[in-house]
């Protein structure tokens, strides 16, 4: 597939497609971080994760509408408010879902998968009834439009760059929370040995609820960021869910760094191959390679060693 290109041409193609892949990377990272917390730390498969993301996107959409109507002077900064709102709303719904549904199913992981799938169907139809089946987009504030010229061939759109910075900041924040805070210590203790963690006085039920809510909240931020680079429809979340699961599993379920590395690898591979092949074949090849590697190395790229 590289026939007919000189080396320098290839290099600039790779650079170009690499930058194009970065916005896909940002969405993957944000989606996958939330999922990795829930799946990696709790062993729960949340099939409704995409719908939590879309909830964040719709929250952003509503907030932008609100600012346009009532506070047009502050419109430039609405996005930060929207992100906090999206986080809080999704986290609240997540905590409720954990309380009502998930905590009864911890011993049956396969059943959580089916139950959350049911939840995702309900949420999708709810979005469709409330917001209509058409995709909606938000208006970007002035400062987010345009692009930065890096070299004469490569230019970076500001909104894409902004989303990527958010993704990296959240990843960093999450790292600090998980590995440098007392709460993170509790979460990791529960993951590694639940009975012992309970024995030393950690309330594992509360830790589970917080973890689930945090994961869902990050999905909300992902949705909020998603509106900056694309439009939102009731079933946009479903399109990403399998890819994101693969990102999480490929990275090694318990490893945050692994998640970021695998999100980078998958998004870059896909966007680079898209230049040479049709979009669908690029996706097929990427997924095939990932599935193939996972068949040979089921524990993923960077597996945390835990006692089994």
């Amino acid at each position: 597939m590289f026939d007919g290109y000189t080396t320098s041409e290839l290099m600039s193609i790779f650079a170009m497609q690499g930058f194009a892949g970065l916005s896909l990377f940002s969405v993957f990272v944000l989606m996958a971080l939330g999922l990795a917390i829930i799946f990696g730390q709790m062993g729960v498969i949340n099939m409704a994760h995409g719908e939590f993301m879309i909830l964040g996107a719709y929250t952003t959409y509503l907030t932008s509408g609100f600012f346009q109507a009532y506070l047009p002077s502050l419109f430039g900064g609405y996005f930060f408010i929207a992100m906090i709102m999206a986080f809080l709303i999704c986290a609240a719904l997540g905590a409720f879902v954990e309380w009502a549904m998930i905590r009864r199913l911890y011993k049956r992981p396969l059943d959580t998968l089916l139950a959350t799938w049911g939840l995702s169907l309900i949420l999708q139809q709810a979005y469709r009834s409330i917001f209509g089946p058409r995709e909606v987009g938000v208006e970007l504030p002035e400062w987010m439009m345009g692009a930065i010229q890096v070299t004469d061939m490569v230019e970076l759109p500001i909104n894409g760059l902004f989303v990527m910075i958010i993704a990296l900041l959240i990843a960093l924040g999450l790292y600090l929370l998980m590995y440098r805070s007392g709460w993170g210590k509790k979460v990791r203790a529960v993951v590694q040995n639940r009975p012992m963690a309970e024995a030393v006085g950690i309330n594992s039920g509360a830790v589970d609820r917080m973890t689930f809510a945090l994961g869902c909240g990050i999905a909300g931020i992902a949705g909020s960021a998603f509106t900056m680079i694309g439009s939102t429809g009731p079933s946009s979340g479903q399109a990403y869910i399998v890819d994101t699961f693969l990102v999480v599993v490929f990275g090694g379920a318990q490893s945050l760094i692994g998640t970021i590395v695998s999100a980078f690898a998958i998004s870059q591979a896909q966007s680079t191959m898209e230049f040479f092949l049709s979009g669908s074949m690029a996706k097929v090849l990427t997924l095939l390679v990932v599935v193939g590697i996972l068949m040979l190395r089921p524990e993923g790229l960077m597996a945390l060693k835990i006692r089994r």
């Binding site: 059943d111 959580t112 089916l114 049911g118 169907l121 309900i122 999708q124 139809q125 469709r128």
Partner: peptide, 19 residues
């Protein structure tokens, strides 16, 4: 409009109430 709600409820109900 109702069907996806019913289907979702079916998934949750079967898992939670009568496995």
């Amino acid at each position: 409009e109702i069907w996806p709600f019913a289907m979702g409820a079916l998934f949750i109900g079967v898992v939670m109430a009568f496995p």
